[in-house]
Amino acid sequence: MSKIQSAFANGKAFIAFITCGDPDLETTEAAVCAAAANGADLIELGIPFSDPTAEGPVIQGANLRALKGGVTTDKIFAMVENLRKKVSIPMVFMTYANVVFSYGAERFISRCAAIGIDGLILPDIPFEEKEEFLPICKMHGIDLISMIAPTSADRIAMIAKEAEGFLYIVSSLGVTGTRTEITTDLASMVKIVRQNTSVPCAIGFGIAEPEQARHMAVFADGVIVGSAIIKLLAKYGRQAPPYVGDYIKKMKDAIR
């Protein structure tokens, strides 16, 4: 069993997304520690990309701030290596295909395994293109996380059957960012998922409030929150970690 599934052993999982290097890597490290100490079950670490086409304005902003601050893939690897000494919950990288491809897939993925990364989320690698990286991920024990979306329909079963680690369910159409309302028929989507895999599933995109998280957690095994955390980092900068911790405690309590 992959280490990622241990994140789902503690009731409904709370998955926190943090862009590395926004505003700097020291703050990222402190924010991850605060998240873990306050109930986060899994951390999604974003490696910034110049042109994050699946992101809304909030995470786009974090990507650009981090790159402007001089963050690179190598600096992030060094930060995670250090972070692993302090944090034991599963951690995955979220980035775009070109960041991995350009670094050299073998070199990137073997480095992930060496520093204690458990999985990889690449929003621009759909099911049809996963062979680009999957064999190398398997070789190094890294779970390549699959996503399903409200438009997936007849593709859900196919994707779920081959899912590893956890299945990322995109709550609604569009890009990342907070939404006041999520109208997708998540119950039906999850039903098909359950028929095809025992891998846990988590819902992300647009979740910001405890009440929303509680509602989403009814359908799935966990919730993923990104933009709401990034907003705290944008607002409080280097002082953000305790605010991130407080927020995560409130969210985790809501779905316990």
């Binding site: 099911f127 049809e128 293109e129 062979e131 996503m147 399903i148 438009t151 995109v170 159409l173």
Partner: peptide
């Protein structure tokens, strides 16, 4: 072996979010 759909040698492919795949 990468997906051969829409390939020109090694180039091309469909590197897009799942949300757009059915489209």
């Amino acid at each position: 072996m990468t997906n051969q759909k829409g390939r020109f040698g090694i180039h091309g492919g469909q590197y897009i979010p799942e949300t757009l795949m059915n489209a």
